Simulated scan of single mutants.
Amino acid sequence: MTSSPAPGPVEAVPEPVEAVPEPVEGRSVAVRVPATSANLGPGFDTLGLALSVYDELTVTALADDRLEIEVCGAGADEVPRDASHLVVRAIAHTYASVGEPMPGLRLRARNVIPHGRGMGSSGAAVVAGVLAAKGLLEGRRQFSDDDLLRLATELEGHPDNVAPALFGGLTIAWTTEHGPAHKKLLVNRGVSPLVFVPEFTMSTQVARSLQPQHVPREDAVFNVSRSALLVAALTQSPELLLAATEDRLHQDYRAEAMPHTSTLVRALRAKGFAAVVSGAGPSVLVLADGPGARLDAVEVATAAADVPWEALMLAVDVKGGTVRESTEGST
């Protein structure tokens, strides 16, 4: 009978060590957010399109409670340089939503989206702040697409601008008992956006105040049909865009407050171009069915316009807002 060998020394198994999240202080992120055009004619407070004009900013978390804000570009002379800045408010709102104290911030913004022109500048600022907070909190907190849309909508008030700014493309946005929701769709490659931007501005609040609380049933049915058709036109059949962008719910009611905008929309539509008020105005969005058609639209606008308009030949942005780590750090 043989004896078993004596057991050797037992090696201690090290306890698993949880990864320690990187401190937020000193982290820097770069954010890029597209302009948007909401409503698109009949899709009032529902449809939105992301466009290839971008606001960019870098946000750095500081070790103390300083707040440093530098802004250049569109609206730089009007935006505040304190905690009331919309990007800062959105960052604070996102931090508060997950119970994290907001650090000091260094914000450097380059604004390109025109302010007060119906191209989603406020929605872009909100989205930029939410995405900046998401990036700064990476490794500590996670945010789903639904979380991002909910946070942005809580500040913006409705999701039709923030949804395309977040996700890109054509978005359908709606509200459920659990909060806002969206569906992103890819736009047909034949659709070529053109935006006419004037020198004057329009307040979204004023534009909304011109809306009646009730509309005739036939007008509601008319817009339901055109909204459904517009989704098909933008995704499959650009040749239907003119009919699909007809509207009876909001543009006529706002026309008196934006006579130059109304004049340009009518002139373009009379020549067969799918022209609508961009968002709350006063810019005009043309959904052309090809790049060449945009040049023709510019000629029509030049002949019909009674005030100067800047023509922006754009593409549909398909990525939406982005956030990435930046090499800029605190000093």
Rank of each mutant, 00 (worst) to 15 (best):
E78G: 12
E78F: 09
E78M: 11
V79D: 07
V79M: 14
V79N: 06
P80D: 13
R81G: 12
D82M: 10
D82T: 11
D82W: 13
A83H: 13
S84R: 15
S84Q: 13
S84F: 06
H85R: 11
L86C: 11
L86W: 09
L86G: 03
L86P: 01
V87Y: 12
V87E: 04
V87S: 05
V88D: 14
V88G: 09
R89N: 07
R89V: 05
R89D: 12
R89C: 06
R89T: 14
R89I: 04
R89M: 14
A90D: 04
A90L: 02
H93K: 05
H93T: 09
T94W: 03
T94Q: 07
T94I: 11
Y95T: 01
A96D: 14
A96T: 11
S97P: 00
S97G: 01
V98H: 09
V98Q: 08
G99W: 13
E100D: 07
P101W: 07
P101H: 12
M102F: 08
M102P: 02
L105M: 12
L105D: 00
R106P: 10
L107C: 07
R108M: 15
A109Q: 08
N111V: 03
N111S: 09
V112M: 06
V112K: 03
V112Q: 11
I113E: 02
P114I: 04
H115A: 13
H115I: 10
H115R: 11
H115Y: 10
H115N: 10
H115M: 12
H115K: 09
G116W: 06
R117C: 03
G118P: 00
G118K: 00
G118E: 00
G118V: 01
G120F: 02
G120R: 02
G120H: 01
G120L: 00
G120D: 02
S122D: 13
S122A: 10
S122V: 04
G123F: 02
A124T: 08
